[in-house]
C-alpha cells in the first residue's frame, strides 16, 4: 500500500469512527430523554412500571420535605398539580433543591414510594438579586411570577402531555 493509500485509509476509518460515535451519542441522549419519564399523576394512577427504572419530574410540594435526624435520608412529595408521588432519597441534594422547586428524580418504584438514587434540580433562565426577587414576589401577592420552579412547571412536566 502506498503512503497515499494509507492516509486515505486512515481518513476513511477516522470518518467512520467519528460519525458512528456521534450517532451513538445522539441515540443515547434521545433514548434517555424519550423513555421512562413519568409525571407524578401518572405514577399515582399506577401507569408507571414497577420493575423498571424511570424518571419522575415535578415540583416539590411545600411542607412535604422531612429529613431524617441522623442520616442523609429525605422524603418529599412531588406534584404536577394533578397527582402527587412520594420520593425517598438517600444522598446529597443539589443546592437548588427547595420547596416549590422543579426537580427530576431517577430511580425505581417500591410500593407507593419512588426510591431515588439521583435527584437533579432544574432552574430557569432568570437571574436577579435577592432584593428584586423579594420585591417582585411582594407585588405579585407573595407568589413568584416565575422562578422558584413555578415557571418551570410546564417544562418539568415535559413532553407537552398535559393531564386532563
Amino acid at each position: 500500500m502506498s503512503p497515499k493509500q494509507q492516509t486515505r485509509l486512515v481518513f476513511v476509518v477516522a470518518l467512520v469512527i467519528g460519525v458512528s460515535l456521534a450517532a451513538f451519542l445522539v441515540f443515547k441522549a434521545l433514548g434517555q430523554n424519550m423513555m421512562y419519564f413519568y409525571q407524578p399523576s401518572q405514577v399515582a394512577a399506577g401507569e408507571a412500571p414497577t420493575d423498571q427504572r424511570f424518571r419522575v419530574g415535578g415540583l416539590v410540594v411545600p411542607g412535604s420535605v422531612s429529613r431524617s435526624k441522623d442520616t442523609l435520608a429525605v422524603d418529599f412529595d412531588v406534584t404536577d398539580n394533578v397527582g402527587t408521588t412520594t420520593v425517598r432519597f438517600n444522598g446529597i441534594l443539589p443546592d437548588l433543591f427547595r420547596e416549590g422547586q422543579g426537580i427530576i428524580a431517577h430511580g425505581k418504584l417500591k410500593g407507593d414510594v419512588f426510591e431515588a438514587d439521583k435527584v437533579l434540580a432544574k432552574h430557569d433562565e432568570n437571574y436577579m438579586p435577592p432584593e428584586i426577587a423579594d420585591a417582585l414576589k411582594k407585588s405579585n401577592d407573595g407568589v413568584m411570577p416565575f422562578g422558584d420552579g413555578k415557571g418551570m412547571a410546564r417544562k418539568v412536566m415535559t413532553n407537552e402531555v398535559q393531564p386532563k
Partner: peptide
Amino acid sequence: PTWGTWWEWDARLTSELILLFL
C-alpha cells in the same frame, strides 16, 4: 452545585459535545 450533577446525557449537553468532536 446547581443541578446536582457534573454531566447528564442530555440533549443540550450531548449536542455541544458533538460540536467539539466536529
